[in-house]
Each structure stands twice: as C-alpha cells, then as structure tokens.
C-alpha cells in the first residue's frame, strides 16, 4: 500500500473486511447446516461398524457353532488335535481376573478420586492427575514386559509367599507360588484400569455442585460426612459408569495378561495357579491356527462379545434401578 492514498486503502480494507465477514458468516452457516448431518453420519458409521463386526464374526464362526454345539460353553477340554473345543476355562478366567481386578482397582481409584477432587491442594491435584493419566497411555505390551520382568519375580519372591504364610489356610492362596497366574494378571489389570476409573470418577465428583457441599458443612458435618453422605451419593450413577468402563477394558485386555497369566486351561480358585482368558486365548492361537480351530476361536470372540454386552446391560439396569429408587424416595 502507498502512504499517499491512505484513506483509499482504509476504505478498501474495511470493504474487504465486510466481504470477509459475510464470507465467514456464510461458511459458519454452511457448517451449522452440515453439522447435524455430519454427526448423524458419524453415529451411523459407528453403529454400522458394530453391526458389521458382529455379522462377519457370525459368518466366520457359523461352522464352529454348528459343530461345537452347546458343549462349547460347558466343556473344559480344548484339544485341537482331537477336534474337541470347550471354552469354560477361558470364560471362567475372564470373569475371575476382571472381578479381582475390580476388587483391587475400585477402592484404590475411588480413594484417589476423592483425594484429588475433595482434599488435595490444587497444585498436587494437577500433578497427580497428570501422572495418573500418563499410566493410561502406556501401551499394554510395555506393561506386560514390566509384568514379566518386575511384577512376576516380585509376586513370586514376596507377595505370594507372604500371602500363603498368612492366609494359606484359604483355598485362594494355597498353591505353588510361581509368580504367574490369576493373581498376577489381576494385579496387572488393576494397574491398567485404575487410571480410567480414577480420572472418570474424579470428573464425576467434580461435577457435584459446591452448594451441596456447603449446605452439608453449614449443618456442621465433617469433611468425611460431607463426602460420604452427599458427594458420593450424588455422583452414584456416574461412578457406576466409571466402573463399567474399567470393567470393559479388563474384559478385553490381551497382551499384558497373555504375558503373565501362564495360559493353562484351569478352573480353580487357587489364585496362584495359571489360567487363561478369552482374549489371551484368541491372541495367542489365532495366527497359527487353521480350519476348525480358527473358526472356533472366532466363535470364542463372539462369546466375549456377548459377555461384554451382558455385563453392560446388567450394569445399566443397576444404575437405572438405583436412580429410580432415589427419585422415588426424593
């Protein structure tokens, strides 16, 4: 621009500005018009993807479903040489390790979440949240490697002998302490789901309005009473949601568990014993399998699908009932 026609240029500029404004206005309107359709499209894609996965699994597994019959979920022999397939040990192992993982992770996560949202000073809050979320970002193979190198020897040398010394009279802790098996897998799973449950339940607790807390404190309640009587019940359904999310991860986790579970077809409550889960079974056998054994592994995937679905439905029913009772009372 020339210095001499300063006026001209400003008027030009403002004109340009107007055009720009109109343009951007048009674009934003266009986007606004497009957005509902775009989001609808995304939702469809997700739904179709799920359906597509289900259909393909079903087609591929159909022969196996026909041949294996119902005994597939009741029998515990998995013998590809003789063509006998029973998934019970894998189903058992999946449920047991996930349950144990929740048993360890839920109290720990809720404790951490309460500390982070209610008690910790804000500096600590930020650093601690960051660290917890970092754990969620560690790839499961790496956690598995750490499991083999650090956790397994630690369990074998310290935790398991200690447990069998103190609680050895219980059937859970009476086995041979090798470091591998159900207990170690559950600990690994717990480590992996703690960040998920913690960060989600922290958000839930943070969304509890401050007026609720203040009202309670004004009534002379202690901090703990405030937390247990008001904050936690208020976030009830959200906390269950956090647990479900963690459980979903635990049910499907593969690599880290495969590396430490010992992969034996055992149905036992001896937690030192080796076991297997559906996900580890599929991951470790799929590549080299063929024919019926491959189809059966795909059938096993369907079983995992159904288990995950059932767990979700049950959990949702629980939440729904809990909230219903609450509103009825209120």
């Amino acid at each position: 621009m020339n210095m001499s026609d300063d006026d001209l240029s400003t008027s030009k500029d403002s004109n340009k500005h107007k055009v720009k404004k109109i343009n951007s206005h048009l674009i934003s309107r266009f986007i606004a018009g497009l957005l509902p359709n775009f989001t609808r499209f995304c939702a469809f894609v997700v739904a179709i993807l799920l359906l597509f996965i289900l259909i393909v699994l079903f087609i591929e597994a159909w022969d196996a479903i026909r041949i294996n019959g119902w005994s597939f979920i009741t029998s515990s022999t998995w013998d590809p040489v003789k063509g006998i397939y029973g998934a019970l040990p894998a189903i058992f192992g999946t449920l047991l390790t996930s349950f144990l993982a929740l048993l360890i992770a839920v109290p720990a996560s809720f404790g951490a979440a309460i500390f982070l949202s209610e008690i910790a000073p804000s500096k600590v809050k930020n650093i601690a949240s960051f660290i917890i979320e970092m754990i969620a970002a560690i790839p499961s193979v790496i956690i598995g490697l750490w499991g083999i190198r650090v956790l397994v020897p630690f369990m074998a040398d310290f935790i398991q002998p200690w447990l069998s010394k103190i609680l050895g009279f219980l059937p859970f802790f009476s086995g041979q302490p090798t470091g591998y098996g159900f207990l170690t897998s559950s600990v690994i799973l717990a480590i992996m789901i703690i960040p998920i449950i913690t960060s989600m339940s922290r958000e839930v607790l943070r969304s509890v309005p401050n007026s609720q807390r203040e009202a309670m404190l004004a009534l002379g309640a202690t901090k703990w009473e405030t937390i247990s009587r008001v904050v936690l019940p208020y976030g009830n359904s959200g906390l269950v949601g956090a647990i479900i999310l963690g459980l979903g991860r635990a049910l499907g986790e593969t690599m880290a568990v495969a590396m430490v579970i010992g992969n034996s077809p055992n149905i036992t409550f001896d937690l030192f014993s080796g076991g297997m889960t559906i996900a580890t079974k599929i991951a470790s056998e799929f590549g080299e399998s063929g024919g019926q054994s491959r189809e059966t592994l795909i059938e096993l995937a369907l079983v995992l699908f159904v288990i995950a679905l059932l767990v979700n439905v049950i959990a949702r029913l629980l939440v729904w009932r809990a909230t219903k009772v609450k509103t009825e009372k209120g």
Binding site: P80, V81, N263, G274, M276, E288
Partner: peptide, 23 residues
C-alpha cells in the same frame, strides 16, 4: 495328546512365544 500347533497339554505353564517360554 498327539501332534499339533497347539495341543491339550496335560501339565505345565504356558509362555507367550519363544520369549515368554525362555523368560
């Protein structure tokens, strides 16, 4: 038991791949 890429093992612990067994 018989022969196969994976068999119905009577005893033992399973390691994942060569590395898992070695470990």
């Amino acid at each position: 038991v018989g022969t196969g890429n994976s068999v119905n093992w009577p005893v033992g612990l399973g390691g994942e791949k060569n590395g898992g067994v070695a470990e």
